[in-house]
Design a protein around this nucleic acid. Sequence first.
DNA 1: TTTGACCTTCCACTGTACTGGAAGGTTCAT
DNA 2: ATGAACCTTCCAGTACAGTGGAAGGTCAAA
Lengths: 129, 129
Amino acid sequence: MRIGQLAEATGTTTKTLRFYEESGLLPPAERTASGYRDYTDEAVGRVGFIHRGQAAGLTLTQIGQILRIREHGQAPCSHVRDLLGERLRELDAQIAELLALRETISQLHAQAAEPEPDTCSADEVCRYI
Amino acid sequence: MRIGQLAEATGTTTKTLRFYEESGLLPPAERTASGYRDYTDEAVGRVGFIHRGQAAGLTLTQIGQILRIREHGQAPCSHVRDLLGERLRELDAQIAELLALRETISQLHAQAAEPEPDTCSADEVCRYI
DNA sequence: TTTGACCTTCCACTGTACTGGAAGGTTCAT
DNA sequence: ATGAACCTTCCAGTACAGTGGAAGGTCAAA
């Protein structure tokens, strides 16, 4: 299977697949006599895993860690568990932060929704902020 | 006021202030005979505005827009209103996305919290993902 | 044989908001 | 006069996940 076909099969681009190889997320593919990358069907599953990892909010670096543990013949289960737990905590923090920001902006916006102020003084940039 | 003092007064660094100048967020400061930047007190307010804008979730680019409108002698109120509204919508979308992701990861994590599976087959990277 | 679609490598760039460091000039107190 | 603490410019790099494009090689069909 050539790179274009793998890209099509996995819903990504050839550029991205080469980038994954370069980043160590995909093992270097076999090459045809003319130098074209020649993938096995296994690669489809591998790319699928990368995409599911991304959908789970993991970074490519973290996905690479899991993949490397797997390649060393170990089950990455407990590492995955840790990563997911960590991600969960980060996510909670991030959500809390965004909710607080939303509150701030919401108030600012409500103030700014009033009719044009006549107290828009020249010595400040904007009374709303 | 020299750049180090302005940095101290506004709780930032000289690097950042020069970067703001370069990015058009701060007007080029007057220079002393020896070439040092020489700020007026006004600059403190300006940097404060930038920080408040950031706290409101605006990008430096957006803050720059507001500042430029102000410099053209217009009141940026309605533009600020629009920016805040836009930011609010983005934020809502972002929060919704993160909550959905949190849900996904939470389920994955709960599954991964079970004791080591004996069905950890070699043809997939990790059954949890 | 030629055309077009595909493939290769390599280098540089995207956006965001800075940060680090080198090499050199200035100011002020001792 | 000397040392510390400040200032200047310029270049390059950070994280993240790719993307764009140039220059050239390959393959299959018409």
